[in-house]
C-alpha cells in the first residue's frame, strides 16, 4: 500500500514537472508586462491579452507560418515519394553480395553526420544555385536529412508485408511494379501516413539549416521567428512566448496522432513498439 502511494506521489510530482513549463510559457504569452514581471510570479494572468500575438502578426507571423507549412509539407511529400521506393527495393530484393545491408547502413550513416559539417558547404552550394533564402533551398536540404529516416521506417513496414501476397499476384500475371502498387503499397498506407507526419514534425522544428539558409520572412520558418525575439539588447518575453506557443501547438497535435508509432519513429524503426 505505502509503495503504491509512494509511486503515485512520484508520478504526480514528475507529471507536474513535465507539464508546468509548457503551461507556463502559454500563460506568459497572454500576459501583460505587469503580469510577466510580477513578484511572486503568477500563473493565471490578471489581465489576459492577445496583444503579443497581434504584435507578431505585424512582424510578419503569417509569412513565417506559411513558409513553415509549405516547407514541411513539401519535404514530406518529396521524401516519402523517393524514400518509399528505395525502402521497398531494400526490403524486397536481394542485391548481390552483402549490398542490401551495406546500402541500408550507408543511408542511415548519412543521418549520423553532425549537420554543422554539411551546412557550410550546402550554404555555398545553394548560393551558387541561387537558392539561398528560398523555400525550395530549404526543402532540398530537409529532404536530404529526412531521407534516412523515411527509408528506415518504410523498410520496416514493407518487411512486415508477407511476400506471398505479391507472389500470388505475380503468378496471376501481375508485373512486379503492379504487385508493388496494387498489393504492398495499399497495405503500408498507415505506415506512410505516420512516416509523413514524423517528417512534417522534424522539418517544422528544424533550426540550424533554417538559420543559415534563410534570411528574411520570404523563406524563414517559425523557429527563426521564435529565436529572433531574443535580440542582443533585449528579450521580448511576451512575443517570444507567443511565437513559441504557435510553433509547438501543431506539433503536439501531430505527435498525438502518431503516438502508436512513436517508438518506431524515434528509433528509426530499430525498436518495434
Amino acid at each position: 500500500m505505502t509503495s503504491r502511494l509512494l509511486r503515485l506521489a512520484v508520478l504526480l510530482v514528475s507529471a507536474l514537472v513535465v507539464v508546468f513549463p509548457i503551461v507556463w510559457v502559454v500563460s506568459t504569452s497572454i500576459k501583460t508586462d505587469v503580469d510577466i514581471f510580477s513578484i511572486p510570479p503568477i500563473l493565471v494572468p490578471k489581465a489576459p491579452t492577445l496583444s503579443r500575438y497581434a504584435e507578431l502578426v505585424t512582424y510578419g507571423l503569417f509569412s513565417y507560418l506559411l513558409n513553415s507549412v509549405i516547407v514541411s509539407i513539401s519535404t514530406a511529400l518529396a521524401t516519402i515519394a523517393l524514400g518509399t521506393l528505395a525502402a521497398y527495393s531494400l526490403a524486397r530484393f536481394r542485391l548481390p553480395g552483402k549490398w542490401n545491408a551495406r546500402v541500408s547502413f550507408w543511408i542511415l550513416s548519412t543521418r549520423m553526420f553532425p549537420p554543422i559539417i554539411t551546412v557550410i558547404p550546402l550554404f555555398q552550394l545553394m548560393r551558387v544555385l541561387g537558392l539561398v533564402n528560398t523555400r525550395l533551398g530549404l526543402v532540398i536540404a530537409y529532404a536530404a536529412f529526412n531521407m534516412p529516416f523515411v527509408v528506415w521506417m518504410m523498410r520496416g513496414f514493407f518487411v512486415e508485408v508477407p511476400r506471398d501476397l505479391e507472389e500470388v499476384a505475380m503468378v496471376d500475371g501481375c508485373s512486379r511494379m503492379h504487385a508493388f502498387l496494387r498489393i504492398s503499397l495499399p497495405l503500408v498506407v498507415p505506415g506512410i501516413v505516420a512516416t509523413a507526419i514524423f517528417t512534417v514534425i522534424l522539418s517544422w522544428q528544424e533550426f540550424l539549416f533554417a538559420l543559415i539558409l534563410t534570411q528574411t520572412s520570404v523563406s524563414a520558418t517559425l523557429p527563426i521567428l521564435v529565436s529572433s525575439q531574443v535580440t542582443q539588447y533585449q528579450i521580448l518575453w511576451g512575443q517570444m512566448s507567443a511565437a513559441g506557443t504557435i510553433t509547438m501547438a501543431p506539433v503536439l497535435v501531430f505527435a498525438f496522432l502518431v503516438q502508436r508509432y512513436l517508438v518506431r519513429g524515434m528509433s528509426f524503426g530499430a525498436v518495434k513498439g
Binding site: A15, V25, I36, I39, Q205, S227, A255, Q259
Partner: peptide
C-alpha cells in the same frame, strides 16, 4: 502518465529553449 511524460520530447527544441529562458528569468523567474 505515459502520454504526459512523453510530451517534452515532442516539443520543438527551440521552444523548449525559450520556455526555460522564461522559467530561468532573473528576478522575476519561477
Amino acid at each position: 502518465f505515459r502520454t504526459i511524460f512523453l510530451a517534452p520530447m515532442m516539443l520543438p527544441p527551440i521552444v523548449v529553449a525559450i520556455t526555460f529562458k522564461v522559467i530561468y528569468m532573473q528576478k522575476y523567474g519561477v
